[in-house]
Design a binder for these strands. Structure first.
Lengths: 219, 219
DNA sequence: ATTACTAAAATACGAGTAG
DNA sequence: TCTACTCGTATTTTAGTAA
């Protein structure tokens, strides 16, 4: 289990330059920086190595540490949280028409592996269904921007022997109702976006196929 | 002493909306979110209140929490750290074709009110002309991102009884030459970007209308 | 329903120190 | 020097429970 003080140590290493290169770091230095003893700092480093968040090399009697891709990912998510807090108001307007899904949206929404992550990361329990929107052609290029922006990551998982893919979530609003755009990580580029919400959007807004709606997405 | 797990709790409250308003939060909910017991979460809340990072009110038997200015400041510092880590050297690639302006670019570049600001804020004296680029359609939506990013502000001013509008500048590179994208603040959305540089880019790069060029923009 | 107290259990910490 | 082990102690956490 990854704890806040591990993230703090990881962040310190990253700020020293360990995000991009190997940096010399003794456990004593780390201890001073974090306000703990050398022994504790040493243990923190071991924990981080154990969790695969940093790698360590000894080159000519000096210890070099460097973040692994997994470690970077942890910090990138922290960053995404802070961006959500302080960089709100960057928004994109999407326009599209309602289309029917094949019901797979609801199937995925029922999977425990997703439901738990939604609750934890989106901070609400979504309605078990998705609203599918076919974007107007002039807005399709905005999908690239959305893919590039950070968003909230949903991790892939396995269940009953099959694999469920990861996704990226972006907070949005449709007719003043809070919702979330969910973009599968390894989907083929498409002109359809899926929207989930605490409520049944289709019912609540009285939407039917071919209706045109506008959606604000917050990057 | 403020510990990492206090910051984690503070961040969670902020993400729930406590940055801007009072939000209902029970110690049980907080405990679940942080992966600790109700009792521990209760203690965390008390610590945060004690440190003056959040305030708590009881309204009709519900407890509302909200960050204090001091609490916001703590998170803002965290945010600044992550920005240093991830928001240096973020760049966007633009592709477009060279088009002719109507010479107004050069007119504006000659205005003392602009020239002085360029010198002071861009740290160089731009060539008195602009290179105009019509973006490829797939890159037009990147303009939104550029408008929302911070950039360097050029202030509006008055001279000879007329008003000259403000603009936002973004550092860029074209064929490895440093340049600056200048975006008028109150322009109608357009697919054309204007580029200025110390040198006469058109001459230096031997560009003519309809040539296709790539531009890196640093956000 | 809550919050939060007390006491026991679990965990983390740092001193001493080996390698 | 350094890292990182053991182990006694301090702190933190949680269960039980009162308010």
């Amino acid at each position: 289990m990854l704890k806040p003080h591990h993230i703090a140590a990881l962040k310190h290493i990253a700020l020293l330059g360990g995000l991009h290169e190997s940096v010399i770091l003794t456990s004593k230095q780390l201890g001073i920086a974090l306000g703990v003893s050398q022994q504790t700092a040493s243990q923190r480093l071991l924990d981080l190595i154990n969790d695969g968040l940093i790698s360590r090399d000894i080159i000519s009697r000096r210890e070099y540490v460097k973040l692994t891709p997994k470690g970077m990912e942890v910090l990138r998510r922290e960053h995404a949280d802070y961006k959500r807090l302080f960089e709100v108001g960057k928004k994109l307007l999407l326009k599209g028409t309602i289309v029917s899904g094949l019901g797979e949206g609801a199937f995925y929404m029922r999977q425990k592996g997703y439901k738990e992550q939604f609750k934890k990361k989106l901070l609400y329990d979504p309605y078990e269904g998705t609203l599918n929107l076919r974007l107007s052609s002039s807005d399709i290029s905005k999908l690239d921007i959305m893919r590039q922006s950070d968003g909230i990551d949903i991790d892939p998982f396995e269940s009953d022997g099959r694999t469920y893919g990861g996704a990226k979530c972006l907070p949005a609003k449709i007719a003043n109702i809070d919702c979330t755009i969910i973009m599968p990580k390894r989907s083929h580029h498409s002109d359809i976006v899926e929207v989930i919400s605490k409520q049944n959007l289709r019912g609540k807004l009285g939407l039917k196929d071919r209706d045109i709606v506008e959606l604000s997405v917050f990057l």
